[in-house]
Simulated assay, not measured.
Amino acid sequence: MKRLSGIYLRGMAMGAADVVPGVSGGTIALITGIYEQLITTLSGLKPSLLGVWRRQGFLAFWQASNLGFLVALLAGIVTSIALLARLITWLMDVYPVPLWSFFCGLIIASILLLLKPLRMKQLSTWLMLAAGVLIAVWVMSRPPLGGTLALTLPVFFIAGAVAICAMILPGISGSFILVILGMYAPVLAAVKGGEWAILLAFVAGCATGLLSFVHLLRWLLARFHDPVMAMLVGFMAGSLAVLWPWRVPDASGAALFRTVWPAQYVAETGLPALLPAAVIAAVAGLALVWLLSHFAGHNEANSAAGTSAS
């Protein structure tokens, strides 16, 4: 029960991150140490599990598919979106600089933490890290497609498949991908209007994309663990270009916004730079990752000690 409550809290953190365009729930999964378990569990959802249910019963099916983990995680995500979406949206509107600074601190600390166990002496690891950074920066800097896509059911299906693949990758936000595709507002309108045919097409795309993509991810992690992890960390590092706290809309349309220095932010927007608050928020993000890693290591040590004692 204690383990599932921890998974539930991680799900809440993932849900809170997914609300913010530019932040990925996959980043939170990687930070909190459940990313590989999530990929393994999702890739293990196969039709053959129904045979386990038929032959050995529901309990064996539940354990074989690791549904306790998935249900706890999904419950946390749904709870967070339901309870925190308005708060985070309000913070984005009223205090965007401290909010983005907090996520920057969170990701910087996570990058340092996740690179530590990797074999950074290998050239392939460095190349994959650099590739991850470049890919993330390129994706996040794309201008929105606007109304160039026809709003048909197959388009919603494809948008769901692409967005969910991005969402499972650390550093690349699924909601931000929808913004770039010009599908964020149509999907939101379909949710508000209860357009079930559109929503079913979108959800079907999400399910298809997710269950297809996780098999590839699991295969890559099993065979090229350190280079793949380095690329995932690179995605996170590249997302810092999007999470920079001081940014203004790009009037040229070449990108969604421009990153500027605090003084230029004040000059162009007339809003305060909130530099002290930004520093405090970034330090809070750094501290949170340190605390999470410290307590995770402490719990693992206790579990190992308990196992050896028994």
Rank of each mutant, 00 (worst) to 15 (best):
N66C: 11
I172F: 00
A163K: 03
M92T: 08
L114C: 03
P144W: 01
W261R: 13
D18I: 10
H215R: 12
T208I: 10
A130R: 07
L256F: 15
S175M: 05
A82I: 02
L127I: 13
T152A: 09
A159F: 08
R119M: 15
F257D: 02
N299A: 11
Y8I: 04
I77D: 01
F176A: 02
L91R: 15
L134C: 11
V97F: 10
G105I: 00
I34S: 14
I280L: 13
H215T: 05
G253Y: 05
P154C: 00
V137C: 05
L127F: 14
R3D: 10
P117N: 14
L115D: 09
A254V: 09
A159P: 05
L200G: 15
W100C: 05
L74R: 02
T307A: 14
S48R: 04
S5W: 13
G253H: 02
M14H: 04
A185L: 13
N302M: 12
G205F: 08
Q63C: 04
T269E: 00
A29R: 04
S303W: 12
V179I: 09
G209I: 05
W90E: 13
L9V: 07
M140L: 11
L87C: 10
K192A: 04
G25N: 05
P47Y: 13
L70I: 04
L275C: 15
I177Y: 04
G51N: 05
W261F: 15
R258C: 02
G306D: 11
S293M: 15
Q122R: 12
W53Q: 06
I168S: 06
V203W: 15
L292V: 12
V78Y: 15
S303K: 15
P98R: 03
G105Q: 00
L286V: 03
I158D: 07
G234H: 00
M231E: 08
V94Y: 09
A251E: 03
Y184F: 14
W62Y: 11
V228M: 09
G44E: 02
W126D: 13
I177P: 05
S110V: 01
P186R: 06
N302K: 01
S252P: 15
R119P: 10
L30S: 11
I280S: 04
V203D: 15
S48G: 01
H294A: 10
L73K: 10
I172W: 05
V139Q: 00
M120Y: 13
Q63R: 07
A72H: 08
A190V: 11
T259P: 14
G11P: 02
L292P: 08
Y8V: 02
A304M: 15
I39W: 01
S65H: 01
I7G: 10
I107A: 12
L256R: 12
L127N: 12
E36P: 03
L74P: 08
L274Y: 08
L288N: 09
Y35P: 02
A109M: 01
Q264G: 08
F103A: 10
G146H: 11
V139D: 09
